[in-house]
């Protein structure tokens, strides 16, 4: 009796584990598909809706009918194109300024030894912890005082508050990992600090700069609260607010189609950029986490 039980156990074991492994694998795939559907379907539905107008919008047909009416109307609208241009200027300058500031700061914080280095790093971290809404009243006063109200300059200033801490942190951890011997080798080879920075450090920092730059760009591009508060007139609006303020032909019509089309126009380029840079973004963000 006992022998028989032992026997069946030993013969059943391998197949049971194989079955369990397959079940686990199937479960993982199913869960993965679910997550993909959850994240991608809204965007797909936005694209589908952007091609529709009128009562079509209420159709539950999953397949799109290609119709660029909304896109054409949007791109012909000077307010919207102006908003895109403003967004490009704001996000672009924010990214550029924070990268320049962060590179300098990262070199100092990651390489040099000075009094209060830790305090500076922690202050930078604390700044990025403040919720936007807490910063806003003070920021509003500052913007008024600087005479930047209703100018896109106010947004660049405000966005630096969250892009600079983030870029400084990522780049500092990158610089910290930068092997000291490489720098010493450059010194032995007769390099000045400038030459070390331009010939050795910056080329090697390229991927980190690209990824942090892209993330800073996305942050600035998507921002809504400051953009709504600091800008008064249509010609200075950035794209997220412009989309929010798109109105229909009458107050009873909700302009769902045009809004979806605008969202697609604004997010598609970013998606493409992220897909191109995704590998670098991951390696940039994990700089400092693992050796590589």
């Amino acid at each position: 009796m006992t022998e028989a039980i032992a026997n069946t156990r030993t013969t059943r074991k391998p197949s049971r584990y194989r079955w369990r492994r397959r079940a686990r694998k199937t479960g993982m795939v199913a869960a993965g598909l679910l997550v993909l559907f959850y994240t991608l379907f809204p965007y797909y539905w936005a694209i589908v809706s952007s091609f529709r107008s009128g009562s079509q919008l209420f159709s539950s047909n999953l397949l799109p009918t290609i119709d660029f009416t909304h896109y054409r109307a949007l791109l012909a609208d000077p307010v919207f194109t102006r908003a895109i241009l403003n967004s490009l200027i704001v996000a672009g300058s924010t990214t550029l300024i924070s990268l320049v500031l962060a590179t300098a700061a990262a070199y100092a914080l990651g390489r040099l030894n000075f009094l209060g280095k830790r305090a500076v790093l922690l202050t930078i971290l604390v700044v990025s912890i403040f919720p936007q809404i807490a910063v806003m009243p003070g920021m509003f006063e500052l913007v008024r005082w600087l005479g930047l109200y209703n100018r896109i300059g106010s947004l660049i200033l405000a966005y630096l508050i969250f892009t600079v801490p983030f870029t400084v942190w990522v780049l500092t951890s990158f610089v910290r990992e930068f092997p000291r011997e490489l720098e010493e080798a450059a010194i032995m080879d007769g390099c000045s600090h400038w030459r070390i920075l331009t010939r050795i450090l910056l080329p090697l920092m390229g991927p980190a700069l690209a990824s942090t730059g892209l993330l800073a760009f996305i942050l600035a591009w998507n921002e809504f609260l400051f953009a709504l508060t600091f800008i008064l007139s249509d010609e200075n609006r950035t794209v997220p607010v412009a989309i929010g303020l798109i109105s229909g032909s009458s107050r009873y019509e909700y302009p769902f189609g045009p809004i979806m089309a605008a969202s697609v126009i604004v997010t598609l380029p970013l998606l493409v950029l992220v897909l191109i840079f995704q590998r670098r973004i991951v390696s940039g963000l994990t700089a400092g986490a693992i050796k590589g």
Binding site: E181, L182, A185, A186
Partner: peptide, 8 residues
């Protein structure tokens, strides 16, 4: 150098 420190 120990790590060779070649410019990658």
């Amino acid at each position: 150098f120990q790590s060779y420190a070649l410019y990658p």
